[in-house]
Every structure is written in structure tokens, then in C-alpha cells.
Amino acid sequence: MTAACLMAQPLTAANFAPYGDVLEVAGTPDRMINAGLCGRFHDRARLEFVDGRAGISLFDAEARHLPYALDLMERHPLGSQAFIPLDGVPMLICVAADDGGRPSEVCAFLSQPGQGINLLRSVWHGVLAPIGCAGRYAVIDRIGPGDNLEEVRFDQPLTIEGPRP
């Protein structure tokens, strides 16, 4: 890692695509269901599991604030992991490329209320970080045997800053 400070950018489907999927209700629904009273935004996440099964867990995360000290990244080599906010709380999403089993070229994104994400299998990412206040999330990820967690702690934290008002 070369930078000591990084500015979080807005979360969009285009800029997040190398790391996963943005989950949100935006644009025209793929189809209308329930007698035309509900828009279905169909199949929006590239879920992938080496083995095991998909499970839904609920996370209750403490608030974080910007600037944020990123000192730990993790990845899940056996399955993707989706985070769907239940409270509409924005989250800081830090992701990185892999360089020989370690994160490199960290990128940071700041979600808008209502946006969720799906992290692709083996993508390095920071821990769940709701910004400004605590947040609850539905998490869809792999449930099964084997070690599905790799962690790397940084000797020097990377400071992540947000947009200036």
C-alpha cells in the first residue's frame, strides 16, 4: 500500500463491479408482480459458494465515523457475502485487490441509504462499518465446513476520509 490516506467515493454499480454487486432499488423494475403493485428487481447478486449452502444471518454493528482507521481486511475464499441494510444506515466499504495473498490497492466507497452490496468470493474487504450511527444488516453468505475466513492486519492503519460538506 502506498497511500496513508484515501478518500471514499460514492458507491455505484459501475465503480464497484470488480469487487461485487450494488444491491438497490433503482431504475425500472425487471418485472411487475403482485397484480402490478410490486416491482421486482430480479437476480441482482452474483452469489457463489464452493460448497455448503446459503444462509441468512443478522448483524448488529456499532457506529463508525470518518475519518476511519482501516487496520484490518478479510476475505472469504469459499463464498460470496451480501450485506443488506435494514435501517437505511450508510456504510463505508473498503475493498482491495489481491497481491500474493495480501490486500493491495485499497478502494473505499460510501453507500447511500438503502444501498446494499454483495462481495464476490475472495475479495479483500474491511469489516462492516455503518457510518454515523449503529446499523442492522441481513447478511447472506456461505454456511458450511472449512475455514472461510482469512484476515490481514496492517502495521500502519490507512486513514479513510469522506466527502467534505
Rank of each mutant, 00 (worst) to 15 (best):
M1W: 01
M1E: 03
M1N: 03
A4M: 12
L6M: 05
L6Y: 03
M7R: 15
A8Q: 05
L11R: 08
L11M: 12
T12M: 10
A14H: 02
A14I: 04
F16C: 09
G20H: 06
D21V: 02
V22Y: 12
L23V: 01
V25D: 00
G27E: 10
T28N: 04
R31W: 04
R31Y: 11
M32K: 02
I33F: 04
I33W: 05
A35I: 02
L37I: 10
C38Y: 08
C38E: 15
G39C: 06
R40I: 00
F41R: 03
R46A: 12
V50W: 03
D51E: 08
D51P: 00
R53Q: 13
G55R: 12
G55N: 11
L58Y: 06
E62L: 13
E62Q: 14
A63R: 08
A63F: 02
R64F: 00
H65N: 06
Y68L: 06
A69H: 08
L72P: 02
L72S: 10
E74G: 10
E74V: 12
E74K: 13
E74N: 11
R75N: 04
H76F: 06
H76A: 09
P77N: 01
L78H: 14
G79P: 05
S80A: 13
Q81H: 05
Q81V: 01
A82I: 00
F83N: 10
D87W: 01
G88D: 04
V89W: 01
P90G: 06
M91H: 13
M91L: 14
M91V: 09
M91S: 15
M91R: 13
V95Y: 00
D98P: 05
D98I: 01
D99E: 15
D99P: 01
G100E: 09
R102V: 07
P103D: 10
S104C: 10
S104V: 04
C107H: 14
A108K: 01
F109G: 02
F109C: 05
F109W: 07
G116A: 07
I117E: 03
I117C: 03
N118M: 01
N118S: 04
L119D: 07
L120P: 00
L120E: 07
R121W: 03
R121T: 13
R121C: 07
V123W: 04
V123R: 14
V123K: 08
W124D: 01
H125Q: 11
L128W: 07
L128E: 12
G132K: 08
G132V: 07
A134E: 06
G135A: 03
Y137P: 03
Y137F: 15
A138C: 14
A138N: 14
R142D: 11
R142V: 11
G144R: 12
G144C: 08
P145L: 15
D147S: 11
D147R: 11
D147V: 09
N148L: 05
N148Y: 04
L149Y: 10
E150L: 06
D155T: 04
D155M: 00
P157W: 06
E161S: 13
